[in-house]
Design a protein around this nucleic acid. Structure first.
Lengths: 210, 210
DNA sequence: GGGGACCCCATACCCACGTATAGTGTCGCC
DNA sequence: GGCGACACTATACGTGGGTATGGGGTCCCC
């Protein structure tokens, strides 16, 4: 164990449930509890949004129809805020266009009440494993981004030219500086990016480019 | 224009429609025709499967409920056969679980009859542009794969080591040959892969690795 | 049997890369 | 004013990469 990140993808999952029916909330809490999955329940999207949420792997289980901001509207809002938490919808009175809209917007599943317990557990476990994978990837990316953040502006420029596969003399010409200076910057880039080779550097920059 | 590929992503799109109701078929043909989109209609999945289809950018517009192999079953079959043609479903009696299943299986849209003309046109145009993008990407990949196919076994091994960022002497040690020979192979690899630099080679191999 | 692949190795030369050493200069901030 | 970060330059040396030239060998197939 070399990591102690705040958002460790390996920490225990937490599933957040939002439903205005207390029976459903308790039922889900019990169901997921029986699968050893910790839950946090809310009765409205407003109370969810105003709460301080721990950053742990997991997913959102949302009723579509909720007082105030609906589940579908919350999904849109979350996306706009840049959240990528997997969302599982459930509904008692869903229609096809609604479910299609939710799925196109990136929902992971859309269950109609009453659903089979196992279906919900499957959906949640799938969502959790996806969120874990997403966080793992994101962790790697932020590490690289952090390294790239330590570069000076000039070093960043040089790095861009290096990963294009240009020669030092070409880089020097493009930036209007001497080849010697390029070499210095290039050395700094490799050291700061902890790259062991140009191939390594290319992969690192490709990862954060997309 | 330097290309004359058989599956040119820029050729005119073709939308394939499968519905057992002739009225629907003709209606769709007219609708898409009015949007200047060429169509090919089938009344069953069986007749679609037995037909020789031109390989052109486009999509599949499927009724869910069809005699014989249903639309949903066809989707599964297509996926198993490795097809990645975008699929748009339409149905008169669809339920939520059915639509969710189709969307999770990769359907691009799921329209309920009667749908608004514009919704279908939007869905089809979206599907076509996606298929174009997919083909464009695939074209690039097969080009690179073709280049990689011209490599001898040894050259392939050397390329793998090169993109790891290893030095020639390390590669020589790993393969149990002399550094000189590595250089020869390496030169051949760069030439055959039409790579102008190691950075270029890394990107090409990364593209076909995934 | 000869030609064509594939694979191997060596010498030699040139260019590119990397780094150390040593210096110039600007800017902004304590 | 001085210190630190940043950028720029030069000389010099050692290492790595690329290619040409000129060999060696095996295997397979026509």
């Amino acid at each position: 164990m070399t990591k102690e990140s705040k958002t460790d993808p390996n920490s225990d999952p937490l599933v957040i449930i939002v439903d205005d029916d207390e029976g459903v909330r308790e039922g889900l809490r019990d169901l997921l509890g029986s699968a050893h999955i910790e839950t946090l329940v809310f009765e409205s999207t407003a109370s969810l949004l105003s709460a301080a949420l721990p950053d742990r792997p997991g997913c959102l289980v949302l009723d579509v129809r909720l007082p105030g901001l609906s589940g579908l509207e919350l999904q849109v809002k979350m996306t706009e805020m840049g959240s990528e938490v997997p969302i599982i919808f459930m509904t008692g009175h869903g229609d096809v266009p609604m479910s299609v809209k939710a799925m196109k917007a990136g929902a992971l599943d859309f269950l109609t009440k009453p659903f089979r317990d196992q279906d919900m557990i499957d959906a949640v476990e799938n969502a959790i494993s996806r969120d874990r994978a997403r966080r793992l990837l994101g962790e790697g990316l932020s590490e690289i981004k952090a390294l790239a953040g330590t570069l000076t502006p000039r070093e960043t420029e040089v790095m861009a030219e290096v990963v294009k596969g240009l020669l030092n003399k070409q880089i020097a010409f493009n930036l209007g500086i001497s080849e010697i200076t390029v070499k210095i910057h290039r050395g700094n880039v490799m050291r700061k990016m902890r790259a062991t080779s140009v191939a390594d550097l290319v992969r690192k920059t490709e990862a954060i480019k997309i």
